[in-house]
Design a binder for these strands. Sequence first.
DNA 1: AAACACGGTGCGGGAACCCGCAACATCTCT
DNA 2: AGAGATGTTGCGGGTTCCCGCACCGTGTTT
Lengths: 238, 238
Amino acid sequence: MRALIVEDDQFHATYLQDALAEALPEVTEIFHATDGAAGEEEARAGAIGAIVMDLQMDRRNGIEAARTIWAERPQSRILFWSNYADDAYFRGIEQIVPEDSAYGYILKTASRDRLKLALRAVLAEGQIMVDREIHRRQKSAASPRTRLDDSEFAVLIDLALGLQDKLIAERRGMSLRTVQNRLLSLYEKLGVLSDLDDDLTLNKRVRALNRALVTRTINIETLDAAQRDLETWLSGRR
Amino acid sequence: MRALIVEDDQFHATYLQDALAEALPEVTEIFHATDGAAGEEEARAGAIGAIVMDLQMDRRNGIEAARTIWAERPQSRILFWSNYADDAYFRGIEQIVPEDSAYGYILKTASRDRLKLALRAVLAEGQIMVDREIHRRQKSAASPRTRLDDSEFAVLIDLALGLQDKLIAERRGMSLRTVQNRLLSLYEKLGVLSDLDDDLTLNKRVRALNRALVTRTINIETLDAAQRDLETWLSGRR
DNA sequence: AAACACGGTGCGGGAACCCGCAACATCTCT
DNA sequence: AGAGATGTTGCGGGTTCCCGCACCGTGTTT
């Protein structure tokens, strides 16, 4: 069995390599890539189905790399291992994980034992495993009064890219007014107005993006990826 | 001589500790804190004037910690050591560094030798030392056609918080029209329109924030800090 | 079946935004 | 001193945004 580590931090990579060797004696070879693009190539070249993937990397982040890897070999097993419990990451992963594959999400702050457990569960046994912390934030970020549903999230992405209402409507197949309703509930859920500090009025659109960022609902990688999606959509439009 | 390391990543902390011991034999004690708030306390309690500070940390980031440390003991020497060369960080540091202190900024990707050099230069010799990479990005981000001047940056911050033109004008002491001129040049410099992809028109305000983020002109920590600044300004206004 | 909730849609209007135009003020260069 | 460059400000108007109101279709409750 061959495994691939995609991780740009030297220390984390070696630590992970040790843990992996301990947890999975059946692994015969461990490959290593330091960014998403290189990771894709390694996985392709070595036909590797067991991958540990960092999320935040320079050239190409973990989610994008995972998307192309899964597109080529949907049964690949990928354990994501990250510094942050951002909802943005989890949403991104959930969107791309194929039916018949295994994945996991574990934080770098997890203990070595828990990391090894996750390695076994996901890479060897093919289970789904999500760090408690992430599950908590994602699920209990809780009251449906606060959590965005998919269509709201889609509109948020478009808003964050700077699209105007009309274009969002076209892209998402809604009427103009419906887009505005989504925006309304976005403003509500993101707490755009609840700045009881004052009666000061804000620019809601910008404030919405601001709030989405500081609450880790989206992050800069999200924006990067969304920008690319937008461009392909634009080119296939005319 | 006593030194303090403020760093939340375990591996990086021990690596740094080793390098510090090697580079500065005159250091007798090394303290360690894992977030900004704890770092402030350690520095205060131990009256420590030689500090290595990570930037991205949970409870309180490095720049904020540095600000209060320098407020209490302006002659403290601080070497910032970070994963990223974000212009946002550098701007933040430049704004708070006192006259008669030494500081440095070095990337985590730097070689061990260069790190040791920086440790000596800043903590022992009291020099100013900035990583080449950062200096390059900051200076040559280059053509004055692209780099924001201070007043543009201030307006960008306010825009990013979601303030409307009128409030920005009041806060920065400009006329409404002047604020709008600043915004105009912001749009220009951030490349809000230069999406030659299409004739599609965007929401400039949101797009400006988007561009500022993906170009690393500001980051989420910036937004956090700016929010707090805004609140104190608001409270001192009525 | 009637009543109701809920989400999508159109209309209309007030507010904010974007920006061209023009009048000044300041500063620099010759 | 005059010409020019640069930055600030007011005015006006076209555009987008925000959102209350009203209407409708679908699904749920009584």
